[in-house]
């Protein structure tokens, strides 16, 4: 019976805060995969339209924006057809907002599991990021279809070489920002429940501080106001995406670097706080 190969683990007080046990995360990759599958499957179980909802949501939002901000408020869309203009930002925004919203509720939604079984807690937030990535890809496909439709009708400037690397980069940075901020908030919500209401509301407001329905270069903005907008780490990403696909945004490498640093900083801080809370999370909830 005695088997020298059986690994010995030691359970004791965790002293270091910054410990990103990627190897452990890797051994749980099957769980990661199954949780992503669960998140996706659960959405369309017992629904009539099923995965179509992933399409419908951005379509309806775009239509609503076109009606309200395009037709009624007449906000300048830089010469780009309004639906395309909104959709180009909405898909990225939706991805970020979903990552943030869902990650920020990780502890609350998983308290019943976290309290019973051990697995690397990071599996839960990472799996939400991945399942949202899948949803993003579906919406991205929708965007590409709309994009081609308008391009065929009247071509606009496209920076072809940037499309693939640019998109990948933006998904990555948006995901990191959402994950980092979400980890922060989820850790704080274990102590303060009311923060999660603030987040849901705050995310809605944040959209208006991000160039989704307008462009940073809107003629009516003052220089100071523009600077304020640029300080939002999402601005440079959304604008660059528009610039590459529609030739209508602005591509500011320095501000992109700023966004990247902000994302990494958020992630680092988020993991620190997450680890701190995770140690005795079960004792406070």
């Amino acid at each position: 019976m005695h088997n020298a190969d059986i690994p010995v683990t030691v359970i004791k007080t965790q002293k270091t805060l910054f410990r990103l046990n990627l190897r452990e995360l890797w051994t749980y990759r099957d769980l990661l995969f199954l949780m992503v599958k669960r998140d996706i499957a659960v959405v369309y179980k017992q629904t009539v339209l099923g995965p179509l909802w992933f399409f419908l949501q951005p379509v309806l939002t775009t239509l609503m924006f076109t009606l309200i901000f395009g037709r009624i408020a007449r906000i300048d869309t830089a010469g780009i057809p309004a639906p395309l203009f909104y959709l180009s930002a909405l898909i990225g925004w939706n991805y970020f907002a979903a990552c943030l919203n869902e990650t920020s509720q990780i502890f609350r939604n998983n308290a019943h599991i976290f309290g019973k079984v051990y697995f690397p807690r990071l599996v839960a937030p990472v799996s939400t990021i991945l399942s949202n990535l899948l949803k993003f890809l579906i919406q991205y496909a929708l965007f590409i279809a709309v994009w081609i439709y308008y391009y065929v009708q009247q071509p606009f400037q496209v920076h072809w070489l940037w499309l693939l690397p640019g998109t990948l980069f933006i998904i990555l940075v948006l995901g990191i920002t959402g994950l980092g901020a979400g980890l922060f908030i989820s850790s704080l919500t274990t102590k303060y429940r009311d923060l999660s209401f603030l987040v849901q509301f705050g995310v809605q407001l944040l959209m208006y501080a991000t160039p989704v329905i307008y462009s940073v270069n809107n003629a009516s903005f003052s220089e100071e106001f523009r600077l304020l907008l640029w300080l939002n780490p999402l601005t440079s990403l959304i604008e660059a995406f528009r610039f590459w696909y529609l030739g209508a945004g602005t591509f500011e490498p320095l501000w992109i670097l700023y966004s990247l640093s902000a994302a990494l900083l958020l992630l680092l801080g988020g993991i620190l706080v997450f680890n701190y809370v995770e140690r005795d999370f079960m004792d406070t909830v």
Binding site: V10, K12, T13
Partner: peptide, 14 residues
Amino acid sequence: SKITAPTSGEIKVR
């Protein structure tokens, strides 16, 4: 089961 961390001492698990 590693759900919560101990304050002192340790456990060796094979």
